[in-house]
Amino acid sequence: MPVAGEPRIRAGAATDVGLVRVANEDNYVITASVFAVADGMGGHAAGDVASGLAVAGLAQLGTEGTVRPDDVRRHIVRLNGDILAAAARNPEQAGMGTTVTGLCLVDFAGSPHWVVFNVGDSRVYRYAEKDVPGVRVLEQLTVDHSEVGELVAAGKLSPAEAAVDPRRNVVTRALGSPAAPEPDLFVYPLTAGERFLICSDGLTGELDDAAIAGLLDREEDPRDAAATLVRAAVAAGGRDNVTTVVVDHVAADPGAGDTPADDETAPRQVG
């Protein structure tokens, strides 16, 4: 089901096991409408199973007609059950879990919107103009479901303290939980020229926002941007698996919709 206005989306992805881990438990998915990263947890490669199940499940979104934001929510909750069921069948996978974070393209209120979703501490960033025309800024759209993320949000920990806190890798929501986690999910309209970065914490654990923004700025092609970010994170230490998906909304289709392109709101005709 094509979305109104047919936005042109380009995406690239890269992943690396890093320098310390023996297995890559990250997974990602790119389809016509779903862009996501999953960071698996669990020994004996079960984390890879969990994150693989998550992205395979997400790839099904949009294959059966129009997707609404609540469909994304229900789908993610169902994936939690799938992962639990798989773990129940294979004792060596008991306790496996995964984060899942990303974007899903939906048709909403008559125009294309992103659904930004998150369970866990992987992240979605937006890299685009904000207040100053011509200046692109990096902002994190998702809120980390981690112990330190909650403490920062509650004002009990500064972001600087959070970066070195021993609890920084403890997630408070994950797929594979006995009680289905509530996904964070919100809608966000598409705007041409926006770039999104979806990444596992292996990236943000090694590179700060300035370094990430610099590389996103430098690399035009989303595939190059994804690969460059991963290489930089590995070179900076590579203490965890690193995965990136970079999504560009290249340009608006000139015939998109019937919204006036001008900046003025028309006065209402009374009568």
């Binding site: 008559g110 125009s111 919100f186 919709g257 028309a266």
Partner: peptide, 18 residues
């Protein structure tokens, strides 16, 4: 306090503000 849902409404007559 929390990032809101952002909904773009189509406005054929242009009478909805940004």
């Amino acid at each position: 306090p929390v990032r809101p849902h952002v909904v773009r409404l189509r406005s054929p007559l242009g009478d909805i503000s940004r």
